[in-house]
Design a protein around this nucleic acid. Structure first.
Lengths: 238, 238
DNA sequence: TAGTGGTCTAGACCACGTG
DNA sequence: ACGTGGTCTAGACCACTAG
Protein backbone atom coordinates (compact mmCIF):
# COMPACT_ATOMS: atom_id res chain seq x y z
CA UNK A 1 0.00 0.00 0.00
CA UNK A 2 2.38 2.71 -1.18
CA UNK A 3 1.06 5.83 -2.82
CA UNK A 4 2.97 8.94 -3.79
CA UNK A 5 1.53 10.77 -0.79
CA UNK A 6 3.66 11.11 2.25
CA UNK A 7 0.74 11.64 4.64
CA UNK A 8 -1.25 8.75 3.17
CA UNK A 9 1.71 6.42 3.57
CA UNK A 10 2.11 7.54 7.17
CA UNK A 11 -1.63 7.01 7.75
CA UNK A 12 -1.46 3.48 6.34
CA UNK A 13 1.68 2.62 8.25
CA UNK A 14 0.28 3.85 11.57
CA UNK A 15 -3.16 2.28 11.04
CA UNK A 16 -1.53 -1.04 10.19
CA UNK A 17 0.62 -0.75 13.30
CA UNK A 18 -2.51 -0.16 15.38
CA UNK A 19 -4.34 -3.10 13.80
CA UNK A 20 -1.35 -5.34 14.33
CA UNK A 21 -1.24 -4.30 17.99
CA UNK A 22 2.15 -2.59 17.80
CA UNK A 23 0.34 0.34 19.35
CA UNK A 24 -2.14 -0.98 21.88
CA UNK A 25 -5.53 0.47 22.83
CA UNK A 26 -5.38 2.92 25.73
CA UNK A 27 -1.75 3.77 25.07
CA UNK A 28 -0.44 6.94 23.46
CA UNK A 29 1.08 7.18 20.01
CA UNK A 30 4.50 8.83 19.84
CA UNK A 31 4.12 12.60 19.96
CA UNK A 32 3.77 14.56 16.73
CA UNK A 33 7.30 15.82 17.20
CA UNK A 34 8.67 12.30 17.52
CA UNK A 35 6.71 11.19 14.47
CA UNK A 36 8.26 14.08 12.53
CA UNK A 37 11.67 12.61 13.29
CA UNK A 38 10.65 9.02 12.58
CA UNK A 39 9.14 9.86 9.19
CA UNK A 40 11.55 12.70 8.43
CA UNK A 41 8.78 15.14 7.63
CA UNK A 42 7.13 18.31 8.88
CA UNK A 43 4.52 18.52 11.60
CA UNK A 44 1.62 19.56 9.34
CA UNK A 45 2.20 16.44 7.26
CA UNK A 46 2.17 14.25 10.37
CA UNK A 47 -1.00 16.03 11.46
CA UNK A 48 -2.74 15.23 8.16
CA UNK A 49 -2.05 11.55 8.79
CA UNK A 50 -3.25 11.79 12.41
CA UNK A 51 -6.42 13.58 11.30
CA UNK A 52 -7.20 10.62 9.04
CA UNK A 53 -6.59 8.21 11.93
CA UNK A 54 -8.95 10.26 14.09
CA UNK A 55 -11.67 10.42 11.44
CA UNK A 56 -11.51 6.68 10.98
CA UNK A 57 -11.82 5.93 14.67
CA UNK A 58 -8.27 4.73 15.30
CA UNK A 59 -7.21 7.42 17.75
CA UNK A 60 -8.53 10.18 19.97
CA UNK A 61 -6.38 13.30 19.98
CA UNK A 62 -6.14 14.99 23.35
CA UNK A 63 -4.64 18.42 23.68
CA UNK A 64 -1.76 18.56 26.12
CA UNK A 65 -1.61 14.78 26.39
CA UNK A 66 -1.18 13.02 23.10
CA UNK A 67 -3.00 10.71 20.68
CA UNK A 68 -4.73 7.86 22.47
CA UNK A 69 -5.22 4.60 20.56
CA UNK A 70 -8.87 3.48 20.60
CA UNK A 71 -10.10 -0.08 20.77
CA UNK A 72 -12.70 0.01 18.02
CA UNK A 73 -11.94 -1.19 14.49
CA UNK A 74 -11.19 -4.61 15.90
CA UNK A 75 -12.70 -7.03 13.44
CA UNK A 76 -15.82 -4.90 13.21
CA UNK A 77 -16.89 -4.37 9.66
CA UNK A 78 -17.19 -0.75 8.70
CA UNK A 79 -19.63 -0.65 5.81
CA UNK A 80 -19.44 3.08 6.10
CA UNK A 81 -17.76 4.61 3.11
CA UNK A 82 -17.78 3.13 -0.34
CA UNK A 83 -16.77 -0.49 -0.18
CA UNK A 84 -17.88 -3.12 -2.65
CA UNK A 85 -19.42 -6.44 -1.65
CA UNK A 86 -16.35 -8.31 -2.85
CA UNK A 87 -13.93 -6.07 -0.96
CA UNK A 88 -15.98 -6.35 2.21
CA UNK A 89 -16.35 -10.11 2.17
CA UNK A 90 -12.68 -10.53 1.36
CA UNK A 91 -11.70 -8.41 4.33
CA UNK A 92 -13.91 -10.60 6.51
CA UNK A 93 -12.55 -13.81 5.03
CA UNK A 94 -16.04 -15.13 4.34
CA UNK A 95 -17.14 -17.99 2.18
CA UNK A 96 -19.34 -16.38 -0.46
CA UNK A 97 -20.66 -16.89 -3.95
CA UNK A 98 -22.26 -14.63 -6.55
CA UNK A 99 -24.91 -15.75 -9.04
CA UNK A 100 -25.52 -13.49 -12.04
CA UNK A 101 -29.23 -13.63 -12.90
CA UNK A 102 -29.35 -10.83 -15.40
CA UNK A 103 -26.91 -8.90 -17.60
CA UNK A 104 -28.66 -6.84 -20.24
CA UNK A 105 -28.13 -3.65 -22.19
CA UNK A 106 -31.39 -1.70 -22.23
CA UNK A 107 -32.77 1.69 -23.04
CA UNK A 108 -33.75 3.70 -19.94
CA UNK A 109 -37.38 4.17 -19.06
CA UNK A 110 -38.65 7.31 -17.32
CA UNK A 111 -38.06 6.04 -13.79
CA UNK A 112 -34.52 4.98 -14.56
CA UNK A 113 -33.48 8.14 -16.39
CA UNK A 114 -34.68 10.15 -13.41
CA UNK A 115 -32.70 7.97 -10.97
CA UNK A 116 -29.58 8.24 -13.11
CA UNK A 117 -30.24 11.86 -14.07
CA UNK A 118 -29.53 10.99 -17.69
CA UNK A 119 -31.28 11.63 -21.00
CA UNK A 120 -34.28 9.38 -21.67
CA UNK A 121 -33.23 6.76 -24.17
CA UNK A 122 -29.66 6.46 -22.88
CA UNK A 123 -28.41 2.89 -22.77
CA UNK A 124 -27.65 1.25 -19.46
CA UNK A 125 -26.35 -2.08 -18.30
CA UNK A 126 -28.87 -3.81 -16.08
CA UNK A 127 -27.41 -6.36 -13.70
CA UNK A 128 -29.04 -8.57 -11.09
CA UNK A 129 -26.83 -10.63 -8.80
CA UNK A 130 -27.66 -12.81 -5.82
CA UNK A 131 -25.06 -13.11 -3.06
CA UNK A 132 -24.78 -16.41 -1.22
CA UNK A 133 -23.17 -16.32 2.20
CA UNK A 134 -22.60 -19.56 4.07
CA UNK A 135 -25.06 -21.42 1.86
CA UNK A 136 -27.93 -18.91 1.95
CA UNK A 137 -28.91 -16.41 -0.72
CA UNK A 138 -29.28 -13.31 1.44
CA UNK A 139 -28.51 -10.27 -0.73
CA UNK A 140 -29.86 -9.24 -4.13
CA UNK A 141 -27.81 -6.55 -5.85
CA UNK A 142 -29.43 -4.73 -8.75
CA UNK A 143 -27.18 -2.38 -10.71
CA UNK A 144 -27.87 0.10 -13.46
CA UNK A 145 -24.75 1.51 -15.13
CA UNK A 146 -24.50 4.04 -17.94
CA UNK A 147 -23.08 2.36 -21.03
CA UNK A 148 -21.37 5.60 -22.01
CA UNK A 149 -18.81 4.87 -19.29
CA UNK A 150 -18.68 1.10 -19.59
CA UNK A 151 -18.72 -0.04 -23.22
CA UNK A 152 -18.69 -3.75 -22.55
CA UNK A 153 -19.40 -6.04 -19.66
CA UNK A 154 -19.39 -9.82 -19.23
CA UNK A 155 -20.87 -12.36 -16.82
CA UNK A 156 -17.37 -13.20 -15.60
CA UNK A 157 -16.75 -9.61 -14.57
CA UNK A 158 -20.10 -9.41 -12.80
CA UNK A 159 -19.45 -12.63 -10.92
CA UNK A 160 -16.18 -11.19 -9.71
CA UNK A 161 -16.01 -7.50 -8.80
CA UNK A 162 -17.34 -4.83 -11.13
CA UNK A 163 -15.56 -2.16 -9.06
CA UNK A 164 -12.18 -3.76 -9.58
CA UNK A 165 -12.95 -3.85 -13.33
CA UNK A 166 -14.05 -0.21 -13.40
CA UNK A 167 -11.07 1.08 -11.46
CA UNK A 168 -8.26 -1.18 -12.63
CA UNK A 169 -9.26 -1.99 -16.21
CA UNK A 170 -11.30 1.01 -17.31
CA UNK A 171 -9.49 3.59 -15.19
CA UNK A 172 -12.75 5.03 -13.86
CA UNK A 173 -12.26 7.20 -10.78
CA UNK A 174 -15.05 6.44 -8.35
CA UNK A 175 -15.25 9.41 -6.04
CA UNK A 176 -18.34 9.67 -3.86
CA UNK A 177 -21.79 8.24 -3.28
CA UNK A 178 -25.08 9.09 -1.66
CA UNK A 179 -26.66 6.17 0.16
CA UNK A 180 -30.21 5.73 1.40
CA UNK A 181 -31.26 3.00 3.80
CA UNK A 182 -34.92 2.03 4.09
CA UNK A 183 -37.03 -1.06 4.73
CA UNK A 184 -39.39 -2.10 1.94
CA UNK A 185 -41.94 -4.87 1.31
CA UNK A 186 -40.52 -7.88 -0.52
CA UNK A 187 -41.17 -8.23 -4.25
CA UNK A 188 -41.80 -11.38 -6.27
CA UNK A 189 -38.25 -11.05 -7.58
CA UNK A 190 -36.87 -11.02 -4.02
CA UNK A 191 -38.84 -14.15 -3.24
CA UNK A 192 -37.61 -15.87 -6.39
CA UNK A 193 -33.92 -15.06 -6.02
CA UNK A 194 -33.38 -15.05 -2.24
CA UNK A 195 -33.97 -17.49 0.61
CA UNK A 196 -36.48 -15.44 2.51
CA UNK A 197 -38.37 -17.82 4.83
CA UNK A 198 -41.62 -15.91 4.43
CA UNK A 199 -40.21 -12.54 5.47
CA UNK A 200 -42.46 -9.63 4.59
CA UNK A 201 -39.71 -7.00 4.23
CA UNK A 202 -36.11 -6.50 3.10
CA UNK A 203 -33.60 -3.75 3.85
CA UNK A 204 -33.07 -1.62 0.76
CA UNK A 205 -29.79 0.27 0.33
CA UNK A 206 -29.92 2.67 -2.59
CA UNK A 207 -26.54 3.82 -3.81
CA UNK A 208 -25.94 6.73 -6.16
CA UNK A 209 -22.32 6.51 -7.27
CA UNK A 210 -20.45 9.45 -8.81
CA UNK A 211 -17.13 9.74 -10.60
CA UNK A 212 -14.43 12.33 -9.95
CA UNK A 213 -15.93 14.58 -12.61
CA UNK A 214 -19.18 14.40 -10.52
CA UNK A 215 -20.95 12.39 -13.25
CA UNK A 216 -23.57 10.04 -11.78
CA UNK A 217 -22.76 6.79 -13.52
CA UNK A 218 -24.21 3.98 -11.42
CA UNK A 219 -27.38 3.41 -9.46
CA UNK A 220 -27.50 0.34 -7.23
CA UNK A 221 -30.19 -1.28 -5.12
CA UNK A 222 -28.84 -3.70 -2.58
CA UNK A 223 -31.65 -5.77 -1.09
CA UNK A 224 -30.73 -7.52 2.17
CA UNK A 225 -32.58 -10.20 4.13
CA UNK A 226 -33.56 -8.64 7.46
CA UNK A 227 -31.72 -11.01 9.76
CA UNK A 228 -28.45 -10.76 7.81
CA UNK A 229 -28.32 -7.00 7.60
CA UNK A 230 -25.92 -5.05 9.77
CA UNK A 231 -24.41 -1.64 9.22
CA UNK A 232 -21.74 -0.20 11.47
CA UNK A 233 -20.79 3.45 11.48
CA UNK A 234 -18.28 5.61 13.27
CA UNK A 235 -19.23 9.24 13.68
CA UNK A 236 -17.75 12.31 15.30
CA UNK A 237 -19.77 15.13 16.80
CA UNK A 238 -19.52 18.31 14.75
CA UNK B 1 -22.27 30.48 14.34
CA UNK B 2 -18.96 32.07 15.22
CA UNK B 3 -16.22 30.01 16.76
CA UNK B 4 -12.67 31.00 17.50
CA UNK B 5 -11.48 29.00 14.51
CA UNK B 6 -10.79 30.82 11.31
CA UNK B 7 -11.21 27.75 9.11
CA UNK B 8 -14.44 26.69 10.84
CA UNK B 9 -15.90 30.15 10.35
CA UNK B 10 -14.96 30.06 6.69
CA UNK B 11 -16.51 26.58 6.38
CA UNK B 12 -19.76 27.77 7.95
CA UNK B 13 -19.89 30.91 5.87
CA UNK B 14 -19.30 29.07 2.60
CA UNK B 15 -21.71 26.22 3.44
CA UNK B 16 -24.40 28.75 4.34
CA UNK B 17 -23.76 30.56 1.07
CA UNK B 18 -24.16 27.27 -0.81
CA UNK B 19 -27.37 26.38 1.04
CA UNK B 20 -28.76 29.86 0.40
CA UNK B 21 -27.99 29.50 -3.29
CA UNK B 22 -25.43 32.30 -3.42
CA UNK B 23 -23.18 29.67 -4.99
CA UNK B 24 -25.29 27.50 -7.28
CA UNK B 25 -24.86 23.81 -8.05
CA UNK B 26 -22.64 23.14 -11.08
CA UNK B 27 -20.81 26.42 -10.72
CA UNK B 28 -17.31 26.91 -9.34
CA UNK B 29 -16.45 28.50 -6.03
CA UNK B 30 -13.92 31.33 -6.19
CA UNK B 31 -10.40 29.92 -6.45
CA UNK B 32 -8.41 29.23 -3.32
CA UNK B 33 -6.27 32.27 -4.09
CA UNK B 34 -9.32 34.53 -4.33
CA UNK B 35 -10.71 33.09 -1.09
CA UNK B 36 -7.38 33.90 0.58
CA UNK B 37 -7.93 37.54 -0.32
CA UNK B 38 -11.59 37.58 0.64
CA UNK B 39 -10.97 36.07 4.07
CA UNK B 40 -7.54 37.64 4.52
CA UNK B 41 -5.89 34.37 5.38
CA UNK B 42 -3.38 31.85 4.10
CA UNK B 43 -4.05 29.16 1.58
CA UNK B 44 -3.69 26.20 3.96
CA UNK B 45 -6.39 27.71 6.15
CA UNK B 46 -8.71 28.11 3.16
CA UNK B 47 -7.92 24.54 2.21
CA UNK B 48 -8.93 23.26 5.65
CA UNK B 49 -12.33 24.87 5.15
CA UNK B 50 -12.67 23.48 1.62
CA UNK B 51 -11.72 20.00 2.85
CA UNK B 52 -14.63 20.18 5.29
CA UNK B 53 -16.97 21.26 2.49
CA UNK B 54 -15.78 18.33 0.40
CA UNK B 55 -16.17 15.80 3.22
CA UNK B 56 -19.70 17.00 3.85
CA UNK B 57 -20.75 16.70 0.22
CA UNK B 58 -20.99 20.41 -0.57
CA UNK B 59 -18.28 20.57 -3.23
CA UNK B 60 -16.12 18.44 -5.48
CA UNK B 61 -12.56 19.66 -5.79
CA UNK B 62 -11.09 19.26 -9.25
CA UNK B 63 -7.39 19.73 -9.84
CA UNK B 64 -6.66 22.30 -12.51
CA UNK B 65 -10.28 23.47 -12.59
CA UNK B 66 -11.63 24.54 -9.23
CA UNK B 67 -14.20 23.57 -6.60
CA UNK B 68 -17.52 22.58 -8.11
CA UNK B 69 -20.65 23.11 -6.03
CA UNK B 70 -22.70 19.89 -5.77
CA UNK B 71 -26.48 19.66 -5.68
CA UNK B 72 -26.87 17.29 -2.76
CA UNK B 73 -27.58 18.53 0.78
CA UNK B 74 -30.73 20.12 -0.53
CA UNK B 75 -33.36 19.44 2.10
CA UNK B 76 -32.09 15.90 2.44
CA UNK B 77 -31.64 14.92 6.01
CA UNK B 78 -28.18 13.75 6.87
CA UNK B 79 -28.58 11.44 9.85
CA UNK B 80 -24.96 10.59 9.39
CA UNK B 81 -22.85 11.92 12.21
CA UNK B 82 -24.04 12.44 15.74
CA UNK B 83 -27.26 14.39 15.71
CA UNK B 84 -29.92 14.15 18.38
CA UNK B 85 -33.57 13.53 17.64
CA UNK B 86 -34.49 17.02 18.75
CA UNK B 87 -31.83 18.68 16.61
CA UNK B 88 -32.84 16.62 13.58
CA UNK B 89 -36.56 17.27 13.84
CA UNK B 90 -35.93 20.96 14.44
CA UNK B 91 -33.83 21.22 11.30
CA UNK B 92 -36.67 19.57 9.37
CA UNK B 93 -39.31 21.83 10.92
CA UNK B 94 -41.46 18.86 11.91
CA UNK B 95 -44.37 18.66 14.28
CA UNK B 96 -43.21 16.23 16.97
CA UNK B 97 -43.84 15.26 20.56
CA UNK B 98 -41.92 13.24 23.14
CA UNK B 99 -43.53 11.12 25.85
CA UNK B 100 -41.33 10.05 28.77
CA UNK B 101 -42.38 6.55 29.86
CA UNK B 102 -39.55 5.81 32.22
CA UNK B 103 -36.90 7.72 34.15
CA UNK B 104 -35.21 5.62 36.80
CA UNK B 105 -31.86 5.35 38.53
CA UNK B 106 -30.87 1.69 38.70
CA UNK B 107 -27.92 -0.51 39.40
CA UNK B 108 -26.46 -2.15 36.29
CA UNK B 109 -27.04 -5.81 35.63
CA UNK B 110 -24.48 -7.95 33.79
CA UNK B 111 -25.76 -7.20 30.29
CA UNK B 112 -25.77 -3.47 30.89
CA UNK B 113 -22.37 -3.25 32.50
CA UNK B 114 -20.94 -5.08 29.51
CA UNK B 115 -22.67 -2.72 27.06
CA UNK B 116 -21.42 0.32 28.98
CA UNK B 117 -18.05 -1.27 29.79
CA UNK B 118 -18.45 -0.18 33.41
CA UNK B 119 -18.10 -1.86 36.79
CA UNK B 120 -21.02 -4.11 37.77
CA UNK B 121 -23.11 -2.26 40.33
CA UNK B 122 -22.53 1.19 38.82
CA UNK B 123 -25.62 3.35 38.81
CA UNK B 124 -27.21 4.35 35.54
CA UNK B 125 -30.14 6.46 34.48
CA UNK B 126 -32.63 4.39 32.52
CA UNK B 127 -34.86 6.38 30.18
CA UNK B 128 -37.59 5.29 27.79
CA UNK B 129 -39.13 7.87 25.48
CA UNK B 130 -41.65 7.53 22.65
CA UNK B 131 -41.43 9.97 19.76
CA UNK B 132 -44.64 11.05 18.08
CA UNK B 133 -44.36 12.41 14.56
CA UNK B 134 -47.44 13.76 12.83
CA UNK B 135 -49.74 11.99 15.27
CA UNK B 136 -48.12 8.57 15.23
CA UNK B 137 -45.80 7.05 17.82
CA UNK B 138 -43.04 5.75 15.55
CA UNK B 139 -39.77 5.78 17.51
CA UNK B 140 -38.91 4.36 20.93
CA UNK B 141 -35.68 5.70 22.39
CA UNK B 142 -34.16 3.78 25.29
CA UNK B 143 -31.18 5.40 26.98
CA UNK B 144 -28.76 4.20 29.63
CA UNK B 145 -26.47 6.88 31.04
CA UNK B 146 -23.78 6.55 33.70
CA UNK B 147 -24.81 8.53 36.77
CA UNK B 148 -21.19 9.34 37.47
CA UNK B 149 -21.37 11.86 34.63
CA UNK B 150 -24.94 13.03 35.12
CA UNK B 151 -25.80 13.47 38.81
CA UNK B 152 -29.42 14.48 38.31
CA UNK B 153 -32.02 14.29 35.58
CA UNK B 154 -35.66 15.30 35.34
CA UNK B 155 -38.66 14.45 33.16
CA UNK B 156 -38.61 17.98 31.78
CA UNK B 157 -35.06 17.57 30.52
CA UNK B 158 -35.88 14.19 28.97
CA UNK B 159 -38.93 15.61 27.21
CA UNK B 160 -36.76 18.31 25.73
CA UNK B 161 -33.22 17.42 24.63
CA UNK B 162 -30.85 15.54 26.89
CA UNK B 163 -27.96 16.41 24.59
CA UNK B 164 -28.56 20.14 24.99
CA UNK B 165 -28.59 19.59 28.76
CA UNK B 166 -25.38 17.55 28.72
CA UNK B 167 -23.47 19.97 26.54
CA UNK B 168 -24.82 23.34 27.65
CA UNK B 169 -25.62 22.77 31.32
CA UNK B 170 -23.21 20.04 32.38
CA UNK B 171 -20.39 21.00 30.03
CA UNK B 172 -19.96 17.41 28.83
CA UNK B 173 -17.97 17.16 25.60
CA UNK B 174 -19.61 14.56 23.39
CA UNK B 175 -16.97 13.46 20.95
CA UNK B 176 -17.67 10.30 18.97
CA UNK B 177 -19.98 7.34 18.69
CA UNK B 178 -20.16 3.87 17.24
CA UNK B 179 -23.52 3.05 15.67
CA UNK B 180 -24.98 -0.30 14.68
CA UNK B 181 -28.04 -0.67 12.48
CA UNK B 182 -29.97 -3.94 12.49
CA UNK B 183 -33.55 -5.15 12.12
CA UNK B 184 -35.01 -7.00 15.10
CA UNK B 185 -38.31 -8.67 16.04
CA UNK B 186 -40.70 -6.41 17.93
CA UNK B 187 -40.97 -6.76 21.69
CA UNK B 188 -44.03 -6.42 23.92
CA UNK B 189 -42.67 -3.05 24.98
CA UNK B 190 -42.50 -1.89 21.33
CA UNK B 191 -46.10 -2.97 20.84
CA UNK B 192 -47.22 -1.17 23.99
CA UNK B 193 -45.48 2.14 23.36
CA UNK B 194 -45.57 2.46 19.56
CA UNK B 195 -48.28 2.43 16.86
CA UNK B 196 -47.09 -0.64 15.02
CA UNK B 197 -50.03 -1.90 12.94
CA UNK B 198 -49.05 -5.52 13.45
CA UNK B 199 -45.49 -5.13 12.15
CA UNK B 200 -43.24 -8.04 13.02
CA UNK B 201 -39.96 -6.10 13.09
CA UNK B 202 -38.45 -2.73 13.96
CA UNK B 203 -35.18 -1.08 12.93
CA UNK B 204 -32.77 -1.00 15.86
CA UNK B 205 -30.06 1.65 15.99
CA UNK B 206 -27.58 1.01 18.79
CA UNK B 207 -25.49 3.99 19.73
CA UNK B 208 -22.36 3.89 21.90
CA UNK B 209 -21.54 7.48 22.79
CA UNK B 210 -18.11 8.57 24.05
CA UNK B 211 -16.82 11.79 25.60
CA UNK B 212 -13.67 13.66 24.65
CA UNK B 213 -11.72 11.73 27.29
CA UNK B 214 -12.90 8.56 25.44
CA UNK B 215 -15.13 7.52 28.37
CA UNK B 216 -18.18 5.57 27.18
CA UNK B 217 -20.99 7.29 29.03
CA UNK B 218 -24.20 6.55 27.16
CA UNK B 219 -25.73 3.56 25.44
CA UNK B 220 -28.86 4.16 23.39
CA UNK B 221 -31.29 1.93 21.53
CA UNK B 222 -33.42 3.77 19.03
CA UNK B 223 -36.27 1.56 17.82
CA UNK B 224 -37.90 2.76 14.59
CA UNK B 225 -41.11 1.63 12.89
CA UNK B 226 -40.07 0.11 9.56
CA UNK B 227 -42.00 2.43 7.26
CA UNK B 228 -40.77 5.57 8.99
CA UNK B 229 -37.11 4.69 8.99
CA UNK B 230 -34.74 6.37 6.58
CA UNK B 231 -31.01 6.91 6.86
CA UNK B 232 -29.05 8.98 4.37
CA UNK B 233 -25.29 8.89 4.14
CA UNK B 234 -22.64 10.63 2.08
CA UNK B 235 -19.44 8.72 1.54
CA UNK B 236 -16.19 9.24 -0.30
CA UNK B 237 -14.12 6.45 -1.81
CA UNK B 238 -10.89 5.94 0.10
C1' DT C 1 8.11 24.83 33.37
C1' DA C 2 8.29 21.56 29.80
C1' DG C 3 5.78 18.88 26.65
C1' DT C 4 1.70 18.15 24.16
C1' DG C 5 -1.69 19.15 20.45
C1' DG C 6 -4.46 23.28 17.78
C1' DT C 7 -4.08 26.92 14.65
C1' DC C 8 -1.99 29.80 11.29
C1' DT C 9 1.45 31.67 8.04
C1' DA C 10 4.14 32.57 3.70
C1' DG C 11 6.26 30.63 1.04
C1' DA C 12 7.77 26.39 -2.31
C1' DC C 13 7.28 22.88 -6.00
C1' DC C 14 4.35 19.73 -8.45
C1' DA C 15 0.36 17.84 -11.50
C1' DC C 16 -3.45 18.88 -14.08
C1' DG C 17 -6.68 21.53 -17.34
C1' DT C 18 -7.45 25.14 -20.60
C1' DG C 19 -6.36 28.18 -24.08
C1' DA D 1 1.95 29.84 -20.59
C1' DC D 2 -1.10 30.40 -17.02
C1' DG D 3 -4.30 29.40 -13.43
C1' DT D 4 -6.06 25.77 -10.81
C1' DG D 5 -5.78 22.55 -6.87
C1' DG D 6 -2.32 18.87 -4.22
C1' DT D 7 1.50 18.42 -1.31
C1' DC D 8 5.05 19.83 1.74
C1' DT D 9 7.99 22.81 4.65
C1' DA D 10 9.89 25.34 8.75
C1' DG D 11 8.75 28.08 11.36
C1' DA D 12 5.34 30.84 14.84
C1' DC D 13 2.07 31.49 18.71
C1' DC D 14 -1.52 29.67 21.59
C1' DA D 15 -4.08 26.47 24.98
C1' DC D 16 -3.93 22.68 27.66
C1' DT D 17 -1.82 18.90 30.83
C1' DA D 18 1.36 17.44 33.69
C1' DG D 19 4.94 17.13 37.40
Amino acid sequence: MTTTNKYMNIFHELSNDIEKGIYEPNTLLPSEHELCDRFATSRETIRKALTLLSQNGFIQKMRGKGSLVLGINKMEFPVSGIVSFKELQKSLGRDTHTTVHKLELNETNDWLSSQLECDPGSFVWEIARARTIQGERVILDKDWILQSHVPSLTEEICADSIYAYFENKLGLAISYAKKEFTVEPVTDEDRALLDLDGDSHIVLVKNFVHLEDTMLFQYTESRHRLDKFKFVDFARRK
